[in-house]
Structure formats: structure tokens, C-alpha cells
Design a protein around this nucleic acid. Structure first.
Length: 268
DNA sequence: TTGGTTGTTCGTTC
DNA sequence: TGAACGAACAACCA
């Protein structure tokens, strides 16, 4: 599932590939996956890429942007050659450039989307998302936790409170900090809150360093898998020995309908 | 075959 | 007013 590190990996890669390219045509293969008028972008040039939480914004030289949300199974793959294996059966949108290269939006489950809108509308489209955890300091983070009685894991994943953290990195950060995912956010001590933010930044940065987590079907902008899944400490490790060698095995429970992995002995 | 999976949105309840 | 919670969405896999 593309979370902050996966989207950031794609952003960093596309930022080296796309600026300066001019859009020739956009082919929408699945109506559900695209909204806004794609023709408005024909002939416009890409000027840069931004990320807001898990959302990617492709800026154009007109007053328009092309926004992408990958949701759970989206991929954004850039191809220079017609010999690429793309499009495939999950390609929903193809953006062609005047130099002959193409950007493929693949999405098995069609939850993700591409959307054209004006720069002035960015605020309303992105909605009220919280600060980026990588840009957040300890006192801001403390205010966020202090103001909610939700289980801390659900709070970390609440995009209106903090932008970009999903299931994988929330599980990993709580394990590193030895905090039980069910613990009420406002009951966490200041010292633990500081350490949680440090660890959250650590796993997110590690995720970026390893090119994201290809746990399910995530691929980067070159169509390559990330390696972060090889470094998971609890996520997906149900029944395995806790890596702290505490003698307990990793348990899986459901929180907010999502799989939650933790060590009941280490995470109090 | 049917239920599990999963990020976000939306509707309902408290 | 808004926090909290659950269903819905789509398609595959076990």
C-alpha cells in the first residue's frame, strides 16, 4: 500500500524524469479512474512535482495540476520505450508526451484516481489534512496526541491529524517505541511521545531510503520493487518470534478494520 | 464459493 | 459542532 515513503519515492524519481515534458495526449481506459477534463492539459508542460500526504501533485505551466492518489493498488510507471510491458490489463490511464515517452497509471482495484483541477483548488481537493510527520516538531506532535482519546494507532493513520502515515509505518513505529497500538493517544507520556515521533520519522525515512515497501503490488516509477518489506520488524509477522527476543510471538488484531501487528509483551 | 483484504469517503449515531 | 464508527467501494486470492 503506497504510504508516505512510497509516494515520496515516486515523486523523487518522477521529479528527475517529467519536468520539461509536454503532454501530447491522455488516454483514459477506465472512466472511474480519471476526472476533470484531460484535454485541458494537452500541450501543457510539466513544471514540477509536489506531495501532500499520500497525494501526488503534478504541476503544469498553466494554472492547472494533475493530481494522483494511488490508494491501495495504484502504480505510476514511466516508460520511454514502446517495448515496455505496458500497458497491461490494469492500466487505467496513459499520459503520452511529445517526445514519445509515456506515464502509465495502473490500478488493480480502481480505488485510486487521477484528477485535473486548478491550482487555486488544491486546498479543497486535498481537504483538511494534517501536517507531514517529517516536517513536524515534538511540541506539535504532542498537541496532536494530547487532543484525542482515540487509540494511538488510529490517530497516527488519521490523515486529518497527520498526513501520509498508513498501516505499515504506524505498526512499525509503535513497535519501535514499545507502545501498545490500542493505548489512548492522550495517555501517552511526553517522553514517549518524543520517542514515538523520532521513531516514526526513522521508519518513514528508512522507507524512502529502501525505495518503499512492495508488500503487495507497489512498484516505483521505473516499475521496480522497493525493499522496505525486507526490513519490517512486526508488520506481516503474525505468529513469528518477536525480534526483541522477549519470548513472545507477534500477534495480529483488528483495529478500525485493519490488520494490526504487535508484541503484547514489549508493547505496553 | 465465500470471506478476507484495505485507504478513503460518506453516512449515521452519540 | 464534531468525534467515532462502520459500510461501501473493486478485484483478487485463499
Amino acid at each position: 500500500m503506497p504510504e508516505l515513503p512510497e509516494v515520496e519515492t515516486i515523486r523523487l524519481q518522477l521529479a528527475k524524469l517529467l519536468p520539461g515534458l509536454k503532454i501530447k495526449e491522455i488516454r483514459v481506459l477506465a472512466e472511474k479512474s480519471f476526472s476533470g477534463n484531460g484535454k485541458d492539459l494537452f500541450g501543457t508542460e510539466i513544471t514540477g512535482l509536489r506531495r501532500f500526504g499520500k497525494m501526488l501533485i503534478i504541476d503544469m505551466d498553466k494554472d492547472l495540476v494533475l493530481a494522483v492518489h494511488l490508494k491501495m493498488t495504484g502504480q505510476l510507471i514511466y516508460g520511454k520505450s514502446q517495448k515496455d510491458k505496458l500497458p497491461d490489463k490494469y492500466t487505467r490511464v496513459i499520459v503520452s508526451f511529445t517526445d514519445g515517452s509515456r506515464l502509465f497509471f495502473n490500478d488493480l482495484r480502481k480505488f485510486g484516481w487521477m484528477r485535473v483541477f486548478k491550482k487555486s483548488q488544491i486546498g479543497e481537493v486535498i481537504g483538511k489534512i494534517g501536517p507531514d510527520p517529517l516536517e513536524t516538531n515534538s511540541s506539535n506532535f504532542y498537541k496532536i496526541l494530547e487532543s484525542s482519546r482515540k487509540p494511538v494507532k488510529l490517530l497516527l493513520m488519521d490523515q486529518t491529524k497527520l498526513a501520509g502515515v498508513g498501516n505499515i509505518y504506524a505498526n512499525e513505529a509503535l513497535f519501535l517505541t514499545k507502545i501498545n497500538p490500542k493505548k489512548e493517544a492522550n495517555k501517552i507520556k511526553r517522553s514517549e511521545v518524543d520517542s514515538l515521533l523520532t521513531n516514526l520519522k526513522k521508519v518513514l525515512q528508512q522507507g524512502i531510503k529502501f525505495g518503499g515497501a512492495s508488500d503487495k503490488n507497489y512498484l516505483d516509477a521505473y516499475g521496480k520493487m522497493g525493499e522496505m518489506q525486507e526490513h519490517f520488524l512486526v508488520y506481516g509477522r503474525e505468529g513469528e518470534e518477536c525480534v526483541n527476543n522477549c519470548g513472545e510471538t507477534v500477534k495480529k488484531i483488528k483495529m478500525g478494520g485493519r490488520g494490526t501487528y504487535f508484541c503484547p509483551r514489549c508493547q505496553k
